[in-house]
Amino acid sequence: MSRTATALGQPAVLVSMLIGVIFVAAWEWLPGMLGVARFIIPPASAVAEEIVFMFARENLLYHTAVTSLSVAIGFVLGAALGAAIGYALAVSPTAEFALSPYILALQIAPKVAFAPLFVMWFGFNLMPKILVATLIVFFPVMVNVLGAVRQIDRDQINLGRAFNATRLELFWKIEVPASMPALFAGLRIAATLAVIGVIVGELVGGSVGLGYLLAFGQGQANTPMVFGVIIMLTLIGLVAYLAVVVAEARVLHYMPKRDFGAR
């Protein structure tokens, strides 16, 4: 099995790299050839130059750190809250029945629209953007956990009951581990959503974070800066996603191996 993977892997990596090279080359030269102005699509080199400039003059590292920190806090809070409430609702059908209409409403409500309100309520600090991220991360985690506990084979639970397991034992020994794959699937989605939540919060106002730099660049029609910020945000999202993948690989080590990024 691993032999097949390597045999397939080698040309796939080459093709992947080739696509990357073609993409960057097209980005660098195609807009110019088609007469697209630099302020609309700046070439790759201009963006790279801008990123270097941002490191030197615009405190890019600091803004990236602030955004990363907000993403991390928002992600952890949202994931913890989502998992906790997901499990709580899963083990208490009454609570779920009573709360589901409200949870559904909150789930449907576009979370990013809350950003200006949070800024108004809590001011220009980390709080509003962490809150948006928390809120946006909360749902996929909660929904996945709830769904996973629901879908556990009744017979599996009965097996535990037949062995005289207490409710708490069923929860910790069957329901929690059985819902881990779904929890991690939710966390993967949540990792990328956390970045969106934070950036929306930062776009509303304030003077720190990549969202600020994005607005700042846009406010000066500095398109290379906007591209630079998008690249940094993508990197943060990628790191967050990979962190989840690594954690997942460790926690779900008992699962049949599958290729990176599959799904």
């Binding site: 102005a37 302020f39 609309i40 846009q218 406010g219 000066q220 029609a221 398109t223």
Partner: peptide, 13 residues
């Protein structure tokens, strides 16, 4: 538009 620079960009484009 979204502020002066956005207006300028749209006009320029």
């Amino acid at each position: 538009g979204q502020g002066g620079a956005d207006v300028a960009t749209q006009v320029g484009a």
